[in-house]
Structure formats: structure tokens, C-alpha cells
Design a protein around this nucleic acid. Structure first.
Lengths: 210, 210, 210, 210
DNA sequence: GATGAATGAGAGTTCATTCAT
DNA sequence: TATGAATGAACTCTCATTCAT
């Protein structure tokens, strides 16, 4: 009936207690979605995991999707922060290794959350756009890097930087997600090594012999 | 989905008409899941897309998950068939190119279905196992190929064949899925070329100059 | 999330059984709203009153408000039908008496429903418009009648036909609603007599002595 | 509404500040119900309109219904006060005109509040009784007036004073409510004139020519 | 076999009320 | 007295599945 909304559009928590509960819900939400997937991601599950009552959910979030967006944003922010390779690292190959190591180690968990959300993304434009932006960020960054290496005469100039960035980015992204679903456990550092060598040889970079 | 199941197990269709309806539902189910994702995949939507009445669904499928499994199986079969590289092709690089071309062109659609299903897979062990098997099939096949090339002295013997197969397989799989979600349209043949070159240089195969 | 609606926008019932259930829900809905008012008008109450299960509600109505609109429409139709004074009745005063009698007797119940709904009408434009139209129908009809009597030299030409119609219509409408809420029971026929005399003397019509 | 009530019965405000807040809530509550109807009348909306915090509501009122009763009482008191026709006015017709003018002008707003509340009244006996009393007050007063005019030989002795008072009171009450909902704006003073003439002619009073 | 109505458990959301600070 | 977070029962709506025809 287009009933007038009388419920508060939730505002930022005013007290420390409120802030604590708010954050606990985001953390709990993330755990729930990691563990039980999209279908298990219900306000009830989230509030139970956070140890608060059902109604408290709506004290802080306008809707289930509102929380979802905030979880995605938080995961994305975390990935950005964790994946930044220090500028002090100069050697191109070392930079690749470091980027891959960080992506796998530090951001694997966040990547999983994003993947779980992709399902919902088929329905919601905002969320889909957000996910696209996140991917674009990584692809764009790699593309730039490849271009710079080409200009410096270190990478094969015959490669299309964008296509290459898309392909190599896809590799790392997908490996980060499936790494824990595989039959066998897997030596992460060794995988980082292989990913980096693939990356380097694709660009025509000289891989330092170990 | 985890509902009690008192349904009579539907038997194989006895008549030609029955067979037609049965198949139409699988086709329709696949279209629905491609277009509207997991959340849009309801018996209602599927029967409407197939042009039959609601109740007919349960004449042919024990449950929604039953249909899902059959869709996945059909998609997997199709991928297997489409991705087989003819034995007559001898040159290793040409084989890689052909495999990638086929994966992207012929199986991209099926790959998308599988990805959409992955969400539901977090709930159902059977389905999860099925998806793992499909991936294992591809990874295993690549692993074997790499091993053979190593034995033949054509590929870098320092590589772990399994890790390499996982990484390169992940690349192609993910590219096949995101290729249609990207901002810009993308020249598929050129992507095949890049994927193949990455694959070849990763293995240390000589890429024939164009 | 703007989740795609997959539930059928309910269509007209295809079978006789469906028609029966559909109608039973409208009847039950009306009883519920008469008896328990707007606040008691819940899908649960309605389906219980109709003796069907909860979910059946949404087989026939898109929403609670959808049913409400249909109830209002049905009540309005019924009022129109019941309040029509036969053209064979010629005497102006007799026509007034008959109109009032019918309004009170035949449409009092419908009027009560409409009044109960008015509350919701403060929120929903469609419904408000519908209620306004219903009132306009009656006021307009009376206005015309008064105008004709003035032209015929039977009614006081100094009266504004619209204001007079509004006031007299308000009187009958409100009497129809409160008649059952009063402390004391009330002789309906005597009330019809008084209303009619008020109406007639207001217009300056000669009231036949009894 | 019909919730268990373990609330401490709030006591009358002890301080001036308390008094101010208490009154502000009543005023705000009235505005809210006028503007957004029964469904918009929530403690949340009321406290926001009054510019105090949510919890403050229950410092002053036992429940939502408690506030409602106080609003109704205030509206009723206001109507009584505003509708009192000065004893100095002797002429019966002038008294009628004045009563109608006051009812429409001064009490229209209060009448609207009462009407909005009627919906809730179907749930609460106290409130229903209160509303009945208010109506009875007006009907009773008119009834007395009619009786006196009959005794004085000024009004038609054939009329039932109670039925006549009910009908004429219903007219004014309903006009006061719908006057602002009509399609067209409406000259209030002209409406007062028509109402009064209807009233007078109904009683058989001589309407002074203008 | 096919149809479409019926079912009811469960999901998301609201809101009157309570409580700790 | 004032604040705003917390509570949970109740409400609207959905949908996988069953059933009568």
C-alpha cells in the first residue's frame, strides 16, 4: 500500500555500544555467507551468529541487501589494502611474486565472499556494478603494469596489455577461490611461485633461476 | 532443498510425448538459470518457459534439485563432447590453441551454467561432488598433457604439472565466465590467441611466430 | 534487491473450484473487515474465515491491498445496484423516501465497509480516488435531482444544488454508518421517515401528511 | 495494542520541563495522526515530530493507546469549548447558525482527528466508549434544544427529537469531515448557511429571509 | 499424463515496548 | 528525565511440494 515508512532509515550508531553491535553484525554476516553461502545468509542466521536478537538487525541495516552491500564493500576495501605492493620493491619479478602472494594469502577469504555474492549480483544492478568495479580495479592495475614493462622494453611488445591482464587476473582470481575447494590440500607458497612464473613467462620477463 | 521428500520417484517417460516434455523442461531450466540466475530458477519459471503447467514439473522430476542435477550433467556432457581435441592434431601448440578455442566458443555457455549452480552447491553434497568431478576432469587432462610434454622434453621439467594445470585451467575457466560480463566487448579469437600463448610460454613451449 | 518477481501475478481462476475459493475469500475478507476493522484485516484472518490455508490467499490476490480494492469495488457495485430507485416511481417525495430506505436498508452494510477502509485511504491514492468517486456518484445524482426539481418549480430555487446535495448526502451516509453503533436500537423505518422529511423540507417540497 | 503491559504507570510530570515535553508529545501526536492517519501514528513518528528521543515516549505515556486516549480527550475538550453558543444569543435560528459555524470552523480539525481514531476504536473498548460519549453529548444537546423548541411551539411537534437530532448531527459531523476531501474547494460560510437552513426547515422554524 | 489449486513452513520486515546508561 | 539500543512477537509475502480432478 505504499505505507509510509515510519521505521527509521538506520543512521550511524551514536554510542560505542551501538558501534560494537553494528560491527559485530558485519563480521557475523561475513562469516555466515562464507560458511553457508548465499542461501544461508538470513537475518536470523546473522543475528544469531552475532549473539543479538532478530530485531536488532534492522536497527543497523535497512535490509538484508543493505548489509550485503556493506559486506562487499568491506571485503573490497580489505582486498585493496592487503594487495598493495610496497613501492620500495623495485624488481619487476619480485613485484609479481609479492602481488600474487598477497592476493592468495591476504585476500583469498575476501575473494571467496565476493564470489558467493556474485549470485545475488545477477539480480541487483548496484551490486553487479560494484563487483565489476572491483575486478576492473585489478585488471586496470595489471594492464598499466604490463604497459610500463613494455615501454621499458622488458615485456613482449606484441601482447595486448588488456587481454593479457584479463587472462592473468582471471587466473589468480579463480585460483584464490578454488584453492580451498580442491580435493587435495595445496602448498600455497608453491602455487604463488607457479602463478608468478606463468605470469612472468607470459610477459616474456626473465624469471630469475632459483 | 533440504525439504522432506515424500514424492513418488518419477520414472522415465514412457511415451514420446512424455520424452518431449521431459527434455523441454531441461532445456527451459537451463535457459532460466542462465538468464535469471539461481534465484530465478523456480519450478514456476521453468514450467512457464517450457510452456507446460506447473504441476507437470513433478511428473518428471523428483524435486528442483533433481532437475538441477540433470541440467548440470547435461552441461557437463556437452562440455566434454565439445572440448575434445581431435587426435589427428599433432602439433602441441596447435592442440593448445584448439582446446582453448573450443572451451571458450563451445563451452562458454555451459561454463556459465555451472558457475551459476555453484551457489546452490554450497547446500548439496551431491552437486558439489559433481562440480568437483567436472573440474577434476579438465585439470586431470591438462596435467596428463603437461606430463607428456615434459617427458618428451618439450616442456619445462621444473614445473609441477598439477599446480600448473590448476592455474592454467583456472585461467581459461574464469575467462570463459567473465568474458560476457566485462565492460567492453572482446575479440574472442584474439583472446584464444593470448590464452594459448600464455599457456605455451608457461610450459616453455616454443610459440610459432605468426 | 528488486528480486525478480517469480510468483504468478494471479490470473482469473480457471476452474469452478478456483472461482469458489476466490469468491469465498472476498466474502470472508468483507466479514473480517466489518467485524474486526482495518487492524484485524490480515491475510491470516481472512483465510481462516474462508476455511482455506494461508498460502491460498496469494493464489488469488497479489497482496492484501489487492483484496481490499476488490472488496471496496464489490461493496460499491452492490451499493449502486441496491440504491437504484425504479423509474416507475413518479412522485418526488416517494422517490426520496425510497432512496433513503434503500440506502439505509440495503447499503448500510456496504457503507460500513467503505468507512472502515477510509482509514487505509489516507495512505493509498488509488483507494482514495475510488472512495471519492463513490461519494461523487451519490452527490452528483442528488445534485441532478435537486436541479430538476428546481426547474420544475417544485424545489426552492434559492438553494445551491451542490451544497445541498453534499449536506443531505452526508447526513444519510453518516446515519447509515452510526445507526448500529448507537446506544439504543433504532426503528429503521422511522428513521427513513425522518430523513425523508428533512430532505423534503430542506428542498421546500410539500411533505404529504400521513 | 493488546500487548502485555508491564510498564510502570507514568506519573504526572513533576517539573516544568517535563510538562513541556508531555504537552509537546500530545500536540505532535495529533499532528501525526491528522497528517498520516492511524497507520502513521507510531511512537517513533510522534517522538520525531516532537523532537525528543524514542524512549521518552514511555516516560510520559503508558502505551500508544494511552497517548491516543489523551489526544481524543483533548480534541473533545476543545470541541466542547469551541462549540458552546453564548447564552446571550436568543434567536433560535441565530443559535443554529452560530452552532453550525462553530462546529465547522472551530472543530473541524478536531472532528477529523476523532474520525481517524474511529478505526482504532474497533479494538479498544475504552476508546469506543469515549467516542460514543462525545457523539452523545452533541446529540443530547441538540435533542434538548429541539424539545424546548417544540414545547415553545416553535418546532414541529410531530418530530421525534432524538431521531431528528441524530440525523441533523450526523449531517454536520460528516460535512465537517469531508469538507476538505472534496474535489472542489468550498465556501464555508455558504455551507454554514445551507446547513442552518436545512436544520431550520427540518424543524419547521421560520428561516428569516436574507 | 496434465492441470492448476492448495498447502504451510519459512523468509524478510515492522514496531510497540523495555532496558541499560 | 532523556537517550537510543535491544527485544521478539506478529505481520506480509514466497515458494517447493502435494493433491484432487
Amino acid at each position: 500500500m505504499g505505507r509510509a515508512r515510519t521505521n527509521p532509515a538506520p543512521t550511524a550508531p551514536a554510542t560505542a555500544r551501538g558501534r560494537r553491535t553494528h560491527d559485530a553484525l558485519i563480521v557475523a554476516g561475513r562469516e555466515v555467507i562464507e560458511e553457508h553461502g548465499w542461501a544461508g545468509f538470513t537475518p536470523e542466521a546473522v543475528t544469531q551468529a552475532a549473539g543479538v536478537s532478530y530485531g536488532t538487525f534492522y536497527t543497523y541495516f535497512e535490509s538484508k541487501d543493505d548489509l550485503l552491500r556493506k559486506i562487499v564493500q568491506a571485503a573490497a576495501d580489505e582486498m585493496y589494502a592487503a594487495s598493495r605492493v610496497p613501492d620500495t620493491l623495485d624488481d619487476p619479478y619480485a613485484r609479481i611474486v609479492e602481488a600474487n602472494r598477497r592476493y592468495l594469502a591476504a585476500t583469498g577469504r575476501a575473494a571467496k565472499v565476493l564470489r558467493m555474492v556474485e549470485h545475488g549480483a545477477y539480480l541487483d544492478d548496484n551490486l553487479r556494478r560494484l563487483l565489476l568495479e572491483i575486478r576492473e580495479f585489478y585488471v586496470g592495475r595489471s594492464e598499466e603494469g604490463i604497459r610500463r614493462l613494455q615501454v621499458a622494453g622488458l615485456a613482449d611488445p606484441g601482447l595486448d596489455p588488456r587481454l593479457t591482464a584479463i587472462a592473468l587476473g582471471a587466473m589468480v582470481e579463480q585460483v584464490a577461490v578454488i584453492i580451498n575447494e580442491l580435493r587435495e590440500p595445496l602448498d600455497t607458497e608453491k602455487m604463488v611461485d607457479h602463478l608468478s612464473r606463468i605470469w612472468a613467462s607470459a610477459l616474456g620477463l626473465r624469471v630469475p633461476s632459483e
